[in-house]
Amino acid sequence: MTDRPIARTAPIAPAAGSTIQPAIQPAIQPAVDPFGRAITYLRVSVTDRCDFRCVYCMSEDMAFLPKAEILSLEEIDRVCSAFIDLGVRKLRLTGGEPLVRKNVMSLIRSLGRHLSAGTLDELTLTTNGSQLVRHAEDLAAAGVRRINVSLDTLDPNKFRAITGWGRLDGVLDGLAAAKRAGLSVKINCVALKGVNDDEFHRLVEWCGGEGFDLVFIEVMPMGEIGADARLDQYLPLSMVRASLAERWTLEESDYRTGGPARYAVCRETGGRVGFITPMTHNFCESCNRVRLTCTGTLYLCLGQEDAADLRAPLRRSDEDADLVAAIREAVSRKPKGHDFVIDRRRRGPAVPRHMSVTGG
């Protein structure tokens, strides 16, 4: 299946003087899980491929999926649109690295029609920043207003060690391009013990000066990356926050973006600093998210293996009835929360699939 730019058909305007009113679409019952949580946030991995090999995300000898298993851009558009019809208001594209997928901008432009129609509140993406110089202006033109950029260090040598072969200057150029395009930027920093824990103060200062939000994330036990490697990396964010408090005044904030981060405002810089704590204090009670992989597998929880195949109903018919039924059935099984644990008694990862496959 080859990816082609998605064809878009402009809406047909009524003839001049016509009294015919546009058809009003009937309201569709939103998808609600067994705990009464409406699913309003969909994260979609558009590819399992990436131009980096971050140490906490991928193994060095990653085996990528055959193309036949990957949803086409048209299929991704169709699944996203079905979720929007079922009440999703926020859509995030992820990877791997989403911007390395061929013709991905045609998908982003097509999904932007839901913003124009008022049926979607936000279309955004998480990226490593390597392709932003090429795509930042096009993203803004498509309706993207905010992006997350994964950046764990400001040291070029350390950056290359963390990312496998990434170039820090390329990412910094991309961030500058994002600012010029008017995109709001949130920096995601995974806290890694013995790796970047000496840079947290510098990151707070730098993000404050650049006007970027900064969010620290606890490393999660997903995918095999080597014996004890993730335990050695793990750093509770309670320790990170205590360290930051030695220099910065962090004042609690009720600012939310629809995701799991809890924010404070740094009085000295005026910037926001967030914390995502899946290990030390999970955020499951208010979870409104599901995740779709690039193969069409729907995961109801980042930290659970229960999933549903949406590719089969998607390809079985051009009508969406089976697809919508499969989505509803899956959401009806969404668990209350995850079971992430990191300790030396548990030798393997809590979840065998890598973060790059799941879509962050």
Rank of each mutant, 00 (worst) to 15 (best):
T269M: 05
V240I: 12
C266W: 03
D228Y: 12
R241D: 07
T269S: 12
A261Y: 03
N282L: 00
E246N: 11
E268R: 08
V240W: 02
P236E: 02
P260E: 02
E218I: 04
V204S: 06
R267Q: 13
F283S: 03
G208W: 04
Y263S: 12
G223F: 06
V240Q: 03
E224T: 14
E224F: 14
R272A: 11
M239L: 15
G259R: 02
E218R: 09
Y263K: 08
D254Y: 04
R241L: 07
D254C: 11
I225G: 01
G274H: 07
V265R: 13
L235M: 09
M222H: 08
R289K: 08
N288W: 02
E210K: 13
G258T: 08
A245M: 13
E224H: 14
V240S: 06
W248E: 04
E205D: 15
W206F: 15
G271F: 03
R272I: 10
Q233I: 14
S243F: 06
A264P: 00
Y263P: 06
V273R: 01
Q233M: 15
G259I: 12
E285M: 08
G226W: 03
L203F: 11
I217W: 01
G211E: 02
E205V: 15
V204M: 07
S253Y: 07
G208F: 09
N282W: 01
R247N: 12
E285P: 00
L237A: 06
P278V: 12
V240D: 02
E285A: 15
R256N: 09
D232Y: 09
L203D: 00
C287Y: 01
N288R: 10
N288Q: 11
M220K: 04
T280G: 01
G258E: 00
D228A: 14
L203I: 14
F275G: 05
S253C: 10
G208C: 07
P278H: 05
R256A: 15
G259F: 05
W206D: 07
S286I: 07
R241A: 10
I217N: 01
R256H: 13
T277M: 09
A227D: 06
I217M: 02
I217F: 03
Y255Q: 09
F283V: 12
I225L: 12
W206M: 13
Q233K: 02
E218Q: 07
E268A: 13
P260I: 11
D228E: 14
R272W: 00
P278C: 07
A264K: 03
A242F: 00
T269A: 05
L214D: 02
Q233N: 10
V265S: 05
V265C: 11
S238K: 10
Y263M: 10
M222V: 15
V240A: 02
G211A: 10
N282Q: 06
E252F: 06
T249F: 02
G270C: 05
R256C: 13
L250T: 11
L214C: 11
P221I: 12
S238G: 12
E252Y: 04
C266M: 04
R256W: 02
N288I: 11
N288L: 01
Y234D: 10
I276D: 00
A245V: 10
S253V: 13
L214V: 14
I276K: 01
A227S: 12
P260M: 08
I276E: 00
C284E: 01
E252G: 10
E224R: 14
E246Y: 04
I225P: 01
D213P: 05
M220E: 01
D213F: 06
C284H: 03
N282A: 13
G226S: 08
R289D: 03
M222C: 13
M279N: 03
C284W: 01
